[in-house]
């Protein structure tokens, strides 16, 4: 097998890389569309989390979507407002610097990221309030905390700052 593949050579002087630095902003204009756009509008105007319900299997999808992935039917406009309280279901504590896919900026770090089981049984993925990582645990009751300034909202899922711990 593959005997022609080169073996790792003993240490010799390492060639150099070209280091490239980008200093040019790239502009993108994405359409949120009618379904996801509804989520954006409800978050900005009413501080509500909305999904839509499949007419066939009755499963709620968040954000609202055009087609039910399971039934392959058009979802329609049976919109559902979701509860803003839930239970931490899975979590992790991120210490790596990651990029915000939304705006291309580096996220503050470290922070806890979680999968939250909302009180109507729908999963929602968001970050938790920056907290002592030793206090985090599965089963913690949490509630959404929104950006209070209307002008700052309009970023869809990012209109929720984080989920904070509440009493049982």
């Amino acid at each position: 097998m593959a005997k022609a593949s080169p073996k790792k050579k003993a240490k010799e002087k390492e060639p150099e890389y070209i280091h490239v630095k980008f200093d040019m902003p790239r502009r993108y204009n994405w359409s949120t569309g009618r379904h996801l756009g509804h989520f954006y509008a409800q978050a900005k105007e009413n501080k509500k989390i909305v999904g839509n319900r499949c007419p066939q299997c009755k499963e709620i999808w968040v954000p609202p979507t055009l087609v039910c992935p399971k039934c392959k039917v058009e979802m329609g406009w049976d919109l559902v407002e979701l509860p803003q309280t839930g239970t931490v279901y899975q979590y992790t504590y991120l210490v790596l610097p990651l990029w915000d896919p939304h705006y291309g900026e580096k996220w503050a770090n470290p922070y806890p990221s979680a999968t939250i089981l909302l009180d109507n049984g729908v999963f929602y993925r968001h970050r938790l309030e920056d907290t002592d990582k030793d206090k985090l645990k599965v089963g913690t009751r949490v509630q959404a905390v929104w950006k209070e300034d209307y002008e700052e909202r309009g970023e869809g899922p990012a209109d929720i700052l984080y989920f904070k711990e509440i009493g049982k």
Partner: peptide
Amino acid sequence: AAISAAATPMWGKGAATGAIG
């Protein structure tokens, strides 16, 4: 960073934790 940036731009926020997360 590239994996996180591969998240859907309009819905990735709060969800992108890289493969490691």
